[in-house]
């Protein structure tokens, strides 16, 4: 009799959580491998346009990034709503771009200094005027290899 009674009073057996750490570790390793550390926090709106004929930017150590876009909502009061250039962590004017490139170039090792690419991450609502200014500055310091960084997709979606 007691044999049967024992089974009845038992509640649902607890789900074993012994493998939970393993699962979480798996997730952890996934994120550690596919992501990279943020090197600067974005202060501008940066919605990239899309293009279909894109090439992958290999080797992150050979890339210098310039962000362009309208200042974020929290900076709007101080910096207005016109697209601005962000170098490292601060807003800059086009005339600072040359110095910035030279500074970043000096930080890289000798053999990389001639193969650097400048990645332009420009918000799709920016005007070409500011881009032209940047391009002129880049040409002045002989940083001729640029990459207009975009998402992938049908380019005609940009026009909508």
């Amino acid at each position: 009799m007691s044999k049967f009674a024992k089974k009845k009073d038992g509640e649902l057996p607890a789900v074993s959580t012994a493998s939970l750490p393993d699962i979480v570790f798996m997730l952890l390793f996934f994120f550690m491998t596919v992501t990279v550390m943020k090197d600067s926090s974005l202060k501008v709106k940066n919605e990239l346009p899309v293009a279909s004929e894109i090439k992958k930017l290999e080797k992150k150590d050979r890339v210098i990034t310039i962000y362009v876009g309208a200042p974020d909502a929290q900076y709007e009061k101080v910096f207005g709503t016109e697209p601005k250039i962000q170098l490292n962590d601060k807003f800059s004017s086009p005339s600072d771009v040359g110095d910035y490139i030279l500074m970043e170039r000096a930080k890289k090792s000798q053999e990389l200094q001639n193969v650097l690419t400048t990645s332009l991450k420009v918000d799709k609502n920016a005007n070409m005027g500011i881009i032209s200014d940047i391009k002129l500055e880049l040409r002045k310091v002989n940083a001729l290899k640029v990459n207009y960084t975009t998402g992938s997709g049908d380019a005609f979606n940009n026009l909508k």
């Binding site: 943020k38 894109i54 992958k56 207009y148 960084t149």
Partner: peptide, 20 residues
């Protein structure tokens, strides 16, 4: 790691600018 990292969009149109 979720907070401090981003998944980068590292592709785009490669162009060469003309020398000055």
């Amino acid at each position: 790691f979720l907070v401090t990292t981003t998944i980068e969009t590292d592709a785009g149109l490669d162009r060469m600018l003309p020398p000055i």
